[in-house]
Design a binder for these strands. Structure first.
Lengths: 395, 395
DNA sequence: GACTTTAGTTCGAGTGTCGTACTAAATAGG
DNA sequence: CCTATTTAGTACGACACTCGAACTAAAGTC
């Protein structure tokens, strides 16, 4: 297959068509199966225009007609759906102790996904072969995104700093390019990816301004404004772990005291409840949650962690004013054990009387959030009108 | 004159023209006077297209031809410039102890501006009459923006909360609409407006990711990402005054301790140097700066304030990763007396080794920043292609 | 004074959207 | 069962816009 290429020019009428095609695709993703008439309503385009656009998408295999649904008056519409039998986005995650991969189609369906314990980028090759290999015939990979727990530069390719992973300075995008079938490859921060996933498929669905916090040994944040990730000038936005809102006496791995993650990071939480660390953050948290059922001391420890968590969220909320705050990582496994006290602290702490309290929710996506969000990011250019699927010959 | 109306539809070819017209206008603003050939280069449009677009802009009086500049080989270009003899943006500011107004033309030239002491919105009417009245003949006001030190809702019209101003709950946009000649009216937070002004005309020019901090009795922030204001879900983003990074012992007006503004707000600064408050924050700061020249105690006090300022900026920088941080309000008057210690603290405190230190700069716009930024915001829709100036008949 | 170089316009081709008129396919009601 | 009604989708012509090529215009260069 010829490689998909990003079309930068938007000045001519072809760019207009790309924009309108993307609007149709967005409408299909948002509203699900729709007839041409419904698409015309939702997008504001004329019926005739929608007809032409849909014809192109059908020819490219992006859109298929489903069975006619009748029952209403008048001629029944022929519902179109995005079950992309041809185009998928690939999401990978390289983390400290596991690698993960997700194949996502244009309709938002996860076609395949796997997570396996591993250390180091070498495991990615095999995982990609296994997960993608058997699902690829007849499909085309629109793009690949690799999520890593690291500071990723604004070029979306290179890692500037990774405290727990030996990838600093490497052009990871180039490495990944050799492993995947085709399409654009980019690298992205894992918290950013997870935030994106929660906004599209998880607890923050429907919110245009959201904050995602991942709790592991450190604390990372993904910030969404108008549905788009806030990256900052160098791409490093969201580094909230060492914000000084924790217990001023708590020593942090960074050498200072009072860092947030020294009070609410995994190790601090385990110390607060007096329990040992297990092989993964998730399993540690699950053990704590189980013990909390009949141990008041554990519940009290989590209460304190939840309070400190709320302090930091209050601070971030007054700066960023999110509608929803999603808690991922080990926080999700503890659920209301930490969310409830965090909510109470948040209520007390909001800076001004008029401030709106953001909705605190536990992540619903679990450990696969980052890879899913990475896959969703790979599909982003399609829905933004930056990538033209129509130019391809039908398979 | 008929009212200018915002054109929402972008689907048709007219929308395409609006987009390309806006691209030409942006290029003119960015690069200054340019020939049609240069415009074609910068925008990527065909020469023929630029010719048509420019003809429309000339007919509408938005663009004028300057004298031919020769000297190079070949036929000399006829430079076009944006010195908008017809269209201006109006910026107003209603603050605790003064009101301000600015008339800004499309080329970025301030045609008129005035600031006068006043308390309450009643003074706005007279100011607008005086400032706009004498500069309006033949011109058209594209839009008006009112800057207020308050939490402005996402509707850009109503005030949710204003600690120092009796405007809470009011639809200020409706009030202002009665005072100004025409065009859309919106209300905006003063720190956001000032941030916008610094990015277009001041210390943050050229930076796409910037943070503006205004120091008066309280501390407010304006956040720019990709040149656009970060507003948050309800419009309340940037409320940084009560972030708990100050001296934990310092009591704040909000009832808690440790708030940032309790350590770096105007009153805290004056207490640190042992000097009295004068009639305005600016004058107070100027007196302190003068005294600092030969009073080591004052310098030591400012050193401490600068340190606490740096702590908060470090925190905000790790969250938002700005390229530039601009300090306005009373901070600007103190200059390096607080900026130098803030820079030192910032260098120490940056969360990770790879983090980029943002450039700390004093505001260059002074007290008129908010009104200027408000005026610039009024012109925003023109350069974004949301407002069509071409449909108007030439005056 | 012919040549070269660059600026700007004219013109026709190509692409796209839109509204109207038309055909298609279902239900509702006698 | 047949007709009227209602809604979906298509065909077609009008209109708007961009683009490249050819052309004209206006300077400097040799």
């Amino acid at each position: 297959m010829p490689p998909l290429t990003v079309q930068p020019r938007n000045a001519g009428t072809e760019g207009l068509r790309r924009q309108n095609t993307a609007a149709v695709l967005r409408s299909l993703r948002e509203h699900g199966a729709s007839s041409r008439a419904e698409l015309a309503q939702h997008t504001g385009l004329a019926k005739a225009t929608v007809g032409v656009i849909v014809a192109g998408l059908e020819a490219a295999g992006v859109v298929v007609e489903e069975d006619v649904r009748s029952g209403t008056r008048g001629r029944p519409g022929r519902p179109l759906t995005l079950r992309g039998e041809r185009h998928v986005g690939l999401g990978l995650e390289l983390n400290v102790d596991y690698v993960s991969a997700v194949v996502l189609d244009l309709g938002g369906t996860v076609l395949a996904g796997d997570t396996r314990p591993a250390t180091g980028p070498d495991a990615l090759g095999g995982l990609v072969r296994d997960v993608v290999g058997e699902h690829l015939p007849g499909r085309e990979v629109v793009g690949t995104t690799l999520a890593v727990p690291a500071l990723v530069r604004g070029d979306d390719r290179t890692v500037a700093w990774a405290p727990n992973l030996d990838v600093a300075g490497r052009d990871l995008a180039a490495t990944v390019s050799g492993l995947v079938p085709g399409g654009a490859v980019q690298v992205s921060n894992d918290a950013n990816c997870a935030a994106y996933a929660e906004a599209h498929h998880g607890a923050a669905r429907g919110a245009r301004h959201a904050l995602y916090l991942t709790g592991t040994v450190g604390i990372g944040a993904g910030i969404l404004q108008h549905g788009e990730l806030v990256r900052g000038g160098a791409g490093f936005a969201g580094e909230v772990g060492h914000v000084p809102v924790g217990d001023p006496a708590a020593a942090c791995g960074c050498g200072r005291r009072g860092c947030w993650e020294a009070s609410v990071g995994l190790h601090a939480m385990l110390a607060a409840v007096g329990m040992p660390e297990l092989d993964t953050p998730l399993r540690s948290a699950e053990a704590v949650a189980a013990r909390a059922l009949d141990d008041a001391g554990v519940r009290a420890g989590l209460e304190r962690v939840g309070h400190d968590l709320g302090l930091g969220i209050a601070m971030l909320s007054s700066i960023l004013d999110p509608e929803v705050v999603v808690l991922g990582g080990y926080f999700a496994a503890l659920g209301d054990l930490v969310l409830a006290p965090a909510r109470r602290t948040l209520d007390e702490r909001l800076a001004s009387p008029a401030q709106v309290r953001p909705d605190l929710r536990a992540s619903t996506l679990g450990i696969g959030a980052a890879a899913l969000g990475a896959a969703e990011q790979s599909l982003g250019p399609v829905f933004a009108g930056e990538l033209d699927l129509t130019g391809q010959l039908p398979g």
